[in-house]
Design a protein around this nucleic acid. Sequence first.
DNA 1: GTGAAAGCGCTAACAA
DNA 2: TTGTTAGCGCTTTCAC
Lengths: 345, 345
Amino acid sequence: MGHKGLTADETVPAGGPARAVTLHDVAREAGVAVSTVSRALSNPERVGARTRERVQAVARRMDYRPNRIAQALPRGRTQMLALLVSDITNPHNFGLVRGAEAQASAAGFLLVLGDTQGSPELESDHVCRLSSVVDGFVLASSRLPDADLLQLQGRRSVVLFNREVDGFPSVVTDSVGGSRQIVEHLAALGHRSIAYLAGPSDAWADGVRWRALSSHAEDAGIEIARLGPFSPTVDHGSVAADVGLSSGATALVAFNDLLAIGVLRRLERRGVDVPGEVSVAGYDDIFGSDFCHPPLTTVTSPVEQAGRAVIDLLLGARSARPGLVLPADLRVRESSGPAPSTTIP
Amino acid sequence: MGHKGLTADETVPAGGPARAVTLHDVAREAGVAVSTVSRALSNPERVGARTRERVQAVARRMDYRPNRIAQALPRGRTQMLALLVSDITNPHNFGLVRGAEAQASAAGFLLVLGDTQGSPELESDHVCRLSSVVDGFVLASSRLPDADLLQLQGRRSVVLFNREVDGFPSVVTDSVGGSRQIVEHLAALGHRSIAYLAGPSDAWADGVRWRALSSHAEDAGIEIARLGPFSPTVDHGSVAADVGLSSGATALVAFNDLLAIGVLRRLERRGVDVPGEVSVAGYDDIFGSDFCHPPLTTVTSPVEQAGRAVIDLLLGARSARPGLVLPADLRVRESSGPAPSTTIP
DNA sequence: GTGAAAGCGCTAACAA
DNA sequence: TTGTTAGCGCTTTCAC
């Protein structure tokens, strides 16, 4: 950043950023030792009332602001937390990020955000670069192998979102319950064959959703096939739609809403009637699920709350009850309807 | 992650985090001074080839990872950047965040994210807490008074996104051009009266858009009214739609797509035909604009590129010049159409 | 209650 | 080329 000349002429006494007021400056001004200032500000009760008042007044007057980096060094804690998501452009994560940011902020912590783009390598990369900077990690939809996770846990506290690994505190949305509701819903509408449009095979949620769907489908005597995997993006919904349609299933359940919305768009362009000819459902209830065409039947869950929960878990290391499962409920909209009656020849 | 075996003692998450390997450890192991290790790793050319090799080998073997906080203290730079957005759940920001994160990451910088929720106080708060932590700020849609900005600039480098202030490097999308295109488009469709559904009055873009719209409308001999302000969210689109409709205008131009989509939804629920009875347009071309109902005519711009550009500017890359204006183009979709012919009694 | 001093892990003169 | 040493700004014993 040797990028001077930015302000050299005005506002600032030449020579780059104005030097910040340090503890030393305050101490000199107040006529006490730095240690006294330090205490007066961070452990007020351990300083005489008179001195405390005076020091605090001086600090305020000089607009003293502690240097967090310098504080962090002796303390060994930075008051920063990391949140790593697999796709920051997935609206599903918006709520998570906002909830986490708000909660961290409220606790005086800074949130460092990382986008792993669904790549374990990138995730690992981020973790390495961050581990000397943050006090803990929230790994959302982590694709890291269990072994790496274990190793990381030895160095920093870790909370998982939408993934469960033995020995790790985690917050997950109830994919199992959500999947059950999807199957029940489709069964009630007379569907006898479902196609699951799978997400990335290294995504924990993909496995869970698939297993739950297939087990419940079996219970209900419904045929179910796993198609894919597909990249969980709107764009890849096109190929997923085509594959799903050609499978002959009367209902398509997508790994997530991004994919589902893409499927819907493709189907509309192909002139396929939804839900007349085929029903579509997804997971996440993201921004847009309620106004796409037709509005998407999907599994909803309180992501913003999840964002707050992961931070709480991270900060309350002691009280960390591993395995918080947030409720997930099916939100039925127009993309799902009765199975086409012509199914039986 | 790299190798296992943090130290000889144990890798087990017993009491607390395992102590990290320090420069000191490496120095002892390699039989050289810490400064030599430091150089061998950050200024390899200033160390003898033999020593360099050996030290690097030892560091690698011990899985040494520099403590960024400790590096930052003497250097005075943390290699961290802050990105403050007014609403992290606005899809418009997704691209920005992703672009910025990617570019920062590529340059070895960490990105700290902050959500100001459109509040100058919260923004100022974040800035204070971050200014000892990051090397620079990207303020997106900043609501900070110019004076505060100036003061901040004295301490850290600052780049503005979608706001222009004298003396500040900035990246903005061409709202003026976009507004012109909207007016031309509506004029060509025969509209003679437009209602602008305003955003927050302290949002820089709101002023720019309004002024550009009204000036071009005047040139085209079109009547235009400014309604609002409205909170730029989907929810507040309802009231905006009602107000806009009752104004008698045949075209509604919303401050942004979030608001526009909300307007569309309200209009649909009220049974108002879009664009038959009224046309609607927005700005940003966010996720969802292309599949809402009807698809929204809006001004699109390369936000991910903007995200990269702001970081480049912050890091002082030569390729980036202050005052970058990114192209904005009207994307005409089905929400805008010919003015109702019955307008003329 | 307050001050002096020893670090936290690393960088950067300055010596050798 | 390499080692010695003084900090970076703050916290935290440990004396007084």
